[in-house]
């Protein structure tokens, strides 16, 4: 269970973009979080993925409160999350070939020996051909780079996936392909999903349950 309770967060303490927001995702559940751009939903997603420390409120992971965020979070917690962002070009290190981009979390956690097998397997899953794996980000399209970013998010077999506007820059076919990869992964592993976006049609089709940002804060809250 992933539970966000009364979270207040932002980049300016006097004016937090997230105020008193609560939301939970059950194991294996796919929750779509719908809201306009700039509303704070991406910040909430970062809090949920341990990437941004909230000003107040509690994040519970399987009943245990999270006390540390970012690089201070204990490794088993950090690696329980796979995160994909809207803009692959901002998220991907431009110096790394796609194969190293995908393998990097394995190397960082001392699991080098798994690299060849896991990268090959994931490249096939996300539909990247071997010749693309040797290229660097500027040598591939946005869609191809986002495929690599999704493979990277899955490489440590996370229990939770957080997809923040993962497909906002992509064409319809690449969108459908990446959503299918996420859903196949979830079907095989039982991972839970928080998908943040502004496309109602997409989130309704993709997720078990869709909540609107406006219903999450303070009095408007239903969960």
């Amino acid at each position: 269970m992933l539970e966000l309770r009364a979270i207040t967060a932002g980049y300016d303490r006097r004016n937090p973009v997230v105020r008193d927001v609560s939301l939970s995702v059950a194991p294996g559940e796919a929750v779509g979080l719908l809201g306009p751009s700039g509303c704070g939903k991406s910040t909430l997603a970062r809090v949920a993925a341990l990437l941004h420390r909230p000003d107040s409120g509690t994040l519970l992971l399987d009943g245990e409160p999270v006390r540390r965020w970012r690089h201070r979070a204990p490794r088993p917690l950090r690696t329980a999350f796979g995160v994909v962002f809207q803009q692959p070009r901002l998220a991907a290190d431009p110096r790394l070939a796609l194969t190293d981009l995908i393998a990097e979390p394995l190397r960082a956690t001392g699991r080098r020996d798994e690299v060849p097998e896991r990268v090959t397997e994931l490249a096939r899953t996300v539909g990247l051909t071997p010749d693309l794996l040797g290229r660097r980000p500027h040598e591939v399209s946005d869609g191809q780079l986002q495929r690599a970013c999704l493979a990277r998010a899955l490489v440590l077999r996370p229990r939770w996936l957080v997809c923040d506007e993962m497909t906002a820059m992509l064409d319809a076919s690449t969108t459908a392909a990446l959503v299918a990869v996420v859903e196949d992964y979830r079907a095989a592993t039982g991972a839970g999903l928080l998908a943040v976006g502004h496309d109602r049609t997409l989130l309704h089709r993709w997720c078990d349950r869709t909540v609107h940002w406006d219903t999450l804060t303070g009095a408007g809250r239903t969960h």
Partner: peptide, 11 residues
């Protein structure tokens, strides 16, 4: 056909 309000299947 890849659109989420159609088949939602990729090419």
């Amino acid at each position: 056909q890849a659109l989420p309000d159609r088949a939602f299947t990729p090419i």
